[in-house]
Amino acid sequence: MDKLDEICRILRDMPGVLIRGLDIDHTLLQEIRLRPFRPLMIKYGGREYFVSEKKRLTENIREAYVVNENDIKNTFLALSGFSTYAFEEEMRRGYITIAGGHRVGIAGKTVTADSKIKSMKYVSFINIRAAGERRGCADDVMPYLFSGDRMMHTLIISPPGAGKTTLLRDIVRQVSDGCGVRRGKNVGVVDERSEIAACYHGIPQNDVGMRTDVIDGCPKAEGMMMLVRSMSPEVIAVDEIGTKEDMEAVFYAASCGCAVIATLHGDGIEDIKDSTHMTGIFGRYVILKQDRYGKRKISVHDGKGMRINDRD
């Protein structure tokens, strides 16, 4: 089943018919957006288009198909497998992962209790983001993450949208399967937001390697502890650490002999220098940045902050 088929399984009514009928290169599809009484929009090959009723991409808003309330309501029902109640936790978080690892963001009226989001009703905005694995994007980084056969504790730092999770996923895959002369290692992934492995019904939809165990939807700190106790991983991967509890769990995992690969929002090593609970454990820092043309630059630093790779 290709990317478009997986996405079209949840699109109902006219949006489903139109998107199914598009003659496009499915690999370039990035996003589909449904908003009530607004044009059906897709992001394709880095550009935004409207979808016309003639099943064509257009930039002319007058030709665009206008999404109605029923399109959204029925799409949301199909998205939840006609079991809205089963996705309350995901609705609270604002997204649902579907087969293929595609992520569907939802927005609407939230129901709150004691200033906390309890649920969401009147889901009116749907954003389907097509999953895109980039196998091999960690090739340039891998040689720097090892000392002999030992994996170093690694922290990937970048601003949002620069590709931290994509890089982490590829590192996990390569560590798990083995890369070059290095043997594969048992990897445990704590995937709190289902972004790394994109599990659907517990099965990873992204390739995270043959020796990888995934604990999905679990809070990071608890997940790391559980993995250490139950799956005896050699490497633990976790996305977007930040709290003191997360770091305590990282220390716990490290003290049990596991190498930790983690990501963090930030611009550089300077961002974590002030954070006392962040320093002192990581032997490698991978800094991701994008230049103004969108080109990604990667620099690898050792535990003291010295750059060790020679090109971006």
């Binding site: 029902l77 006609f82 809205t84 109640y85 309350e88």
Partner: peptide, 8 residues
């Protein structure tokens, strides 16, 4: 299947 857990 159209309602939240409590309603269901």
């Amino acid at each position: 299947g159209k309602n939240d857990r409590e309603s269901e």
